[in-house]
Design a protein around this nucleic acid. Structure first.
Lengths: 359, 359
DNA sequence: CCGCCGCGCGTTAGCGCAAACATCGAGGCC
DNA sequence: GGCCTCGATGTTTGCGCTAACGCGCGGCGG
């Protein structure tokens, strides 16, 4: 590819043409704006304009410049541009474990939204859930000159870690508490939990047991709150929620306890992996689902329809949350004040793991 | 030019002290090196040295400078630094769907390794698997001045999309074919598939059926190859592999076909979600696992031990692969030539979904 | 007592780009 | 037809930082 090496004897200048015909060439320095300008016979400023406000350049000139860019395989130096404009078009995402379905999906949604808006995403994952660790993650990203940050850490530590942030630094939180001075994009976990609990009650169950997520995760406590509210409103006994850690294993362990209690006819697990563990424990204990015990989860992971039995769950629109988070962040960067909250409703998906109460 | 607009009547200096006591303060411009220098009573160069080669600055001076930094909440402008040094300490990761367990885990491994080496990670996900799309992802990252790129796209399109890359651009591929001119970090899928196939044969099965991943995914074809090789070496019939798309649904659909065939006593699914679908199909068809049919998966997702029954699978050390990818990339950036290949062996994890052949 | 060395710090220059202003020619207007 | 406008391009400047070199001063050998 690429046209002749020498731009011109007159325009001499020529810094670096990619593939010199002669020798093996010791890494020809990448073309810069000046090189393009020389080749197109214009000034560097015109090249810059072609990039940033093409309508201000006569079509003919523009074409010459674009051709020169192509020929030299020119790519703008983002560092220089950021230095002078102060805008990096990069945003940071702080997350805990991007291996979990929820965070991974949200991250994915953010990234897609960012891509559409011609931004890129840098990530910082945390090795622990402490105030310090969150601060550190934010710091790592700020050091990279990101324009703003999305924090996907639905954990108390996020709120704490964010307190120190300068109030004008653009940050958005996904799914965290309501006492924060930053915009929040969230799923209404409380409504989702309420919905699934009501569903179970409507099937005739006297009450619903709950295997909760870790208490310091905000999602987890919201789900507990939604579940509890429905039980209380219905005047049903509220069993002590059993603590889990989101893992299938913890669901399994709590499931063994629950399976031993013949009173238990309906269990709501705070996420799908725990529900899966629960299903295994019940099966091992010889308690049939849903004939003897109904089980519901939360998240609606893609595999939920294939559990044994297919799992009733609450579908979280992670992609949408990601988009909202991105949009809130862009608004914030654009100078919109305040701490708005965009909440989306999750959807109950009823499958075969829940059924009428036995007897 | 330069030098303080108002260095000091006293120690006054102050370009931008974060919290001016007076008015609401219209966003006090962030402190720059010159501000720190003024406050510490040194030149900007000394401030720079404190950051980059502290041993060249007398401890006393260094302490003054550090104090000034803290007082001004100074943070170096990365764009300026990148502009002048040419090094960004950012690397890019191109991935397809970071929602899938494998890519997500690998990304996570890379990010952890990068963090330890004080690098950050930018991501670019692809909306489709085509040569163009991969090129585009790479391009987006290059435009951000990343120092190198890891491509987690174990798909034919990755190889194609990478061909156009300048040979000296640092790039590393995770788990893709061996005809690439770039370093590769991979799991030995072939060995893993062979291992699980041998395991099934050793249980007395006459042959092993296979639900494969999409043919254009390199992992998928490697697994087919490993499975096929073992069957052929053992002189067993090689059934036509059934095509899946990695999803539980596709495993389910192929499982319905397999369940209808009484000859089928052992099935190896190319990943765990498909194995899960398979399990459901067999269950629905009344074929018991493992008594009548043995099922094995690949990946060993954290939930696999809680499937019904707990799934025999092949554990992929994604974290290790991520670390290798990062290391290869760093070597490459440091100038190491060649296209080395770091392969890790996956491990067979036997659980209850596989058992001796019936009868 | 002179010259040399090297430590510790300062000065200069320039990375690549875009904002702000300058320039220049072609019309339009009365 | 002089003057003003306006569109298209050029020139200057500086974003914040670090590489490269310069300089003064104290110590040390002869």
């Amino acid at each position: 590819m690429t046209v002749p090496p020498a731009p011109s004897p007159a325009g001499g200048a020529g810094a670096a043409v990619p593939d010199a015909p002669g020798a093996p060439a010791a890494r020809p320095r990448a073309a810069v704006m000046e090189d393009v300008a020389a080749r197109a016979g214009v000034s560097a400023m015109t090249v810059s304009r072609v990039l940033n406000s093409p309508e201000k350049v006569r079509p003919e000139t523009r074409a010459r410049v674009l051709a020169a860019m192509r020929e030299l395989d020119y790519r703008p130096n983002s560092a220089a541009r950021v230095l002078v404009t102060g805008r990096s078009r990069v945003l940071g995402v702080v997350s805990f474990d991007t291996t979990l379905y929820g965070p991974a999906s949200t991250l994915y949604g953010i990234e897609r939204a960012a891509r559409r808006a011609e931004h890129t995403v840098s990530i910082a994952s945390l090795s622990s859930l402490t105030r310090r660790s969150v601060q550190d993650g934010v710091e790592r990203l700020r050091a990279q000159s990101v324009e703003g940050i999305v924090v996907i850490v639905p954990h108390r530590s996020a709120a704490e870690g964010l307190r120190g942030l300068p109030p004008d630094f653009p940050a958005v939180v996904v799914g965290a508490g309501d006492d924060l001075p930053v915009p929040v994009a969230a799923v209404d976990h409380r409504a989702g939990a309420a919905r699934v609990t009501r569903h179970l009650l409507s099937l005739g169950h006297a009450t619903v047991h709950h295997v909760a997520g870790p208490g310091d995760w905000i999602d987890a406590s919201e789900r507990v709150a939604g579940w509890r509210a429905v039980l209380e409103a219905a005047g049903r006994p509220v069993p002590e929620p059993l603590p889990g850690d989101w893992s299938a294993r913890s669901g399994y362990e709590q499931g063994r306890l629950l399976a031993a209690d013949p009173e238990v006819t309906a269990v709501f697990a705070a996420n799908d992996p725990m529900a899966l563990g629960l299903l295994r424990a019940l099966r091992e204990a010889g308690r049939r689902v849903p004939e003897e015990v109904s089980v519901a989860g939360f998240d609606d992971v893609p595999e939920a329809p294939f559990f044994a039995p297919p799992l009733t769950s609450v579908r979280q629109p992670f992609g949408e949350v990601g988009r909202h988070a991105f949009q809130l962040l862009m608004d914030r960067i654009a100078g919109v004040q305040g701490a708005p909250r965009r909440t989306v409703e999750p959807e109950l998906v009823v499958r075969e793991s829940t059924a009428a109460r036995p007897g």
